[in-house]
Write a protein that binds this DNA or RNA. Structure first.
Length: 590
DNA sequence: GCCGTTTTCGGCCCGACTGTTTTCAGTCG
């Protein structure tokens, strides 16, 4: 059962509680929703966590829900869930997927019109709305009837449910909008926040905060955005629009002197904010996007505004928390005790080791677009100390091992020539080598011996059992020259989930044998994912941040890999390519 | 039902916006 399916069931339980007695089950509803959020947002498969007895490490899943999940995954049903859902027509649940429908509205309409069939309930409601029957109900009207019709039609078109954007695309979209907003003279500052600022690997909505003394003017400028499809809502301080492609953009405004609290609020994450606000409450403070409210002895409350985010956290006696950490994974406690780790920064990176040039090595996979010289020259521009050339190995179906050897040797000679005429940068002779389905490398020992090291990776036969795949990878990493496992999960964001690996075993092997895992910066890879980076860091596994560049411009993607490292709480000393040339070279030989 | 830098009991974030309403319910972030 997938994470999404499990989360959906938990949301149905929450909705059922809400339908039965919202007041009575208020906290159960929150608990089930929070558990659903946690499961949906986890990159790790719940089914696997369950098998490994690690469900308890999932925040928001306590003893009760954990026991229910165990029943769900072993028996396929849960007595307690059946009890909660008893009496709620099954036709309520499909409606919950349609925006603007919550448990109350869905239940009300299902009951009012005796709609029993979950398969047809959405079109049944659409028909009723078209017949004007919904507007006649008490509490409904023409406008809500129209809203329902639009929501259903947009739901059918997939608007709002479109796949989440990869980071660079989201940056581009946000930049375009910020540029447009800044054309208004009333905009003092405009900053993209939300998951984009936290550098999540994918971004759903684009959130933008504006500092202004004229919120009304800014909002009317915002909703006149030329690429707008429609206005979702428009108020005194905030507004939301839908742009082409079905993407939502949310805007919040705040006076410049209170902008710090808006930055904090709108950056999130939701769970970070909830935890922070609960902590503040225990100190007698109430937090919101407007500032910090303090109750005085007379019972009145005063509001303190803060212009910067640093001051916001400072007023709570906490260290400022980097946005990448704001996921409620322990950062608040550490900020209170001023013990947050110092995260790795892009300027710490001394070299990029996963570089594909256009050298005619006749590779098994795609060749780079630019020459070795061009890639090296770009590395110099980026102020790197070293670069690793790591084209794919020569195709094994087209060449025998002797031919493979001479292709690699020719590339090495080419590198040597460039080395002799190049100053201020060192070059490693690497290669990205396929781990074949039997675990052997696609290049033999003799060819490996003329390399400084090898990056190994999986590019075929993805559908393998977890056990077999783990053995395959470990076998591939066993050669002394194989030092780095590239894009370890094989995932492609929005395209495929990747293969299954037992990371406990991989970590163990890497630690004992001085191997490193790659954090691949390619926007649709971002692999390792942040949650696994966090695990790796906890286990003291060495990591390398690479771009996997196939062209000069792609070497700028390093920032995304570093962002993932930071989201995984990696410090400078967790990342091997922050080492100077000599130290890195030493490690390669280990 | 979850959770712990005042707590293993007793709390539980805070607000915007819309539609249908003369004061609020529902949904959303």
């Amino acid at each position: 059962m997938s994470n999404l399916q499990i989360a959906k069931i938990l949301r149905q339980v929450a909705a059922s509680y809400a339908i039965k007695n919202e007041a009575k089950y208020r906290f159960q509803i929150i608990a089930y929703q929070r558990a659903a959020d946690a499961i949906e947002g986890s990159n790790l498969e719940i089914e696997e966590l369950f098998k490994e007895n690690k469900l308890e490490f999932l925040p928001g899943v306590g003893p009760s829900i954990r026991a229910h999940l165990e029943d769900l995954l072993t028996k396929g049903k849960v007595k307690h869930f059946e009890w909660v859902m008893f009496g709620v027509p099954k036709s309520v649940y499909p409606l919950l997927d349609v925006p603007t429908f919550g448990p109350k509205k869905a239940y009300r309409l299902v009951k009012e019109f005796s709609l029993q069939d979950p398969k047809s309930v959405i079109s049944d409601i659409e028909k009723l709305a078209k017949q004007g029957k919904i507007a006649k109900l008490e509490g409904f009207g023409e406008k809500s009837q129209e809203d329902i019709l639009r929501a259903i039609s947009e739901f059918r078109l997939g608007i709002g449910k479109t796949s989440r954007m990869v980071l660079p695309y989201a940056f581009e979209a946000a930049e375009k909008l910020v540029g447009y907003l800044k054309a208004s003279q009333h905009v003092v500052k405009a900053v993209p926040l939300g998951s984009l600022r936290r550098m999540m690997s994918t971004v759903g909505d684009i959130d933008i905060a504006v500092a202004t003394n004229k919120p009304k003017d800014v909002i009317s400028h915002f909703v006149s955005y030329p690429y707008k499809e429609r206005i979702i809502e428009k108020g005194e301080a905030t507004a939301s629009i839908l742009v082409s492609g079905g993407r939502q953009i949310d805007l919040m405004t705040q006076a410049p002197q209170g902008f710090g609290s808006l930055l904090q609020h709108f950056t999130g994450s939701k769970n970070h904010n909830i935890h922070l606000r609960e902590y503040a409450l225990s100190k007698g403070l109430s937090l919101s996007e407007y500032g910090i409210k303090k109750k005085t002895k007379s019972g009145k409350s005063t509001m303190v505004q803060v212009p910067t985010e640093e001051e916001f956290y400072q007023k709570l006696n906490m260290t400022w928390i980097p946005p990448e950490l704001r996921e409620d994974k322990g950062e608040i406690e550490l900020a209170i005790s001023h013990k947050l780790p110092k995260l790795v920064e892009q300027t710490d990176i001394k070299g990029d080791l996963h570089i594909h040039s256009s050298f005619a090595i006749d590779p098994s996979h795609d060749l780079g677009k630019n020459s070795i010289e061009e890639m090296v020259s770009q590395a110099k521009k980026l102020k790197y100390e070293y670069i690793g050339l790591s084209e794919h190995n020569p195709s094994i179906s087209k060449h025998n091992s002797g031919q493979i050897y001479s292709l690699i040797a020719r590339r090495n000679e080419n590198i040597e020539q460039i080395k002799s005429s190049t100053k201020n940068i060192r070059i490693f002779k690497l290669l990205e080598i396929d781990i074949l389905s039997n675990g052997k490398l696609a290049v033999d020992h003799k060819s490996l011996s003329i390399l400084d090291g090898a990056i190994v990776s999986i590019h075929s036969s993805f559908a393998m059992s977890r056990d077999k795949m783990t053995k395959r990878v470990i076998h591939g990493l066993s050669h002394p020259k194989a030092k780095i496992l590239a894009h370890p999960t094989g995932r492609l964001i929005n395209q495929r989930v990747g293969y299954e690996l037992d990371f406990d075993k991989i970590f163990d092997f890497c630690k004992k044998n001085n191997k490193a895992l790659e954090i691949n910066s390619w926007p649709t890879r971002l692999d390792l994912p942040d949650t696994l980076i966090m695990e790796a860091v906890k286990n003291n596994i060495k990591l390398v941040v690479n771009t996997d560049s196939h062209a000069v411009w792609q070497m700028d993607l390093m920032k995304y890999g570093v962002a993932m490292a930071r989201r995984g709480w990696a410090k400078k000393n967790d990342i091997l390519n922050t080492l100077g040339y000599n130290d890195f070279n030493e490690w390669l030989k280990m």
